[in-house]
């Protein structure tokens, strides 16, 4: 009887602790990876405008897209439930989706890594966890897509 009770309390607690520790570690590793790749692509900006005054003739264009599906860890999900009771900004989700958006933009760039810039970049977020019903939120897909522009190379070589 008491063992059952112990397990009943213990398992969710262990999941929370695992979520807290491993989740924080993964998040830190991901931020480091994002920062490193963003630095690499810093000279190939993604613009949200449709037109750009090209400094060189445009040689070719192609569609670039990247997406990522993310979920929040058990600990933050637990905390966010309280936040949803009292209202206000749900900071862990804000941060998670912001991180996913940066990742999606990077993947969009990586899908056409030789482009000089990416115009008309569109971001789309969709909740794909409606079936689970747990707090309504949790698994989110972020898609980034745009038109990759390649300048004619002849002039600078």
């Amino acid at each position: 009887m008491s063992i059952e009770l112990l397990i009943l309390l213990f398992v969710p607690l262990v999941l929370l602790v695992i979520g807290r520790i491993v989740g924080a570690h993964l998040e830190r590793a991901h931020y480091a990876s994002i920062a490193e790749r963003e630095a690499r692509f810093s000279r190939q900006p993604a613009l949200s405008t449709k037109h750009v005054d090209a400094p060189a003739p445009i040689q070719s264009t192609s569609l670039a897209s990247g997406s990522v599906v993310v979920s929040i860890d058990q600990f933050k999900r637990f905390l966010s439930r309280f936040r949803m009771l009292i209202g206000g900004e749900v900071r862990p989700y804000t941060k998670l989706i912001e991180r996913a958006r940066r990742e999606a933009i990077l993947r969009m760039k990586e899908s056409q890594p030789d482009a000089d810039l990416y115009i008309n970049t569109r971001l789309e977020t969709s909740n794909i966890s409606s079936a689970s019903g747990e707090g309504g939120m949790g698994i989110v897909e972020v898609l980034a897509y745009g038109t990759a522009v390649h300048y004619a190379r002849s002039h600078d070589q």
């Binding site: 491993v22 991901h30 990522v68 979920s71 860890d73 058990q74 998670l96 698994i139």
Partner: peptide, 9 residues
């Protein structure tokens, strides 16, 4: 993966 969060590949 849902326990620790992050990308669901």
């Amino acid at each position: 993966k849902n326990i620790v969060g992050g990308e669901l590949k």
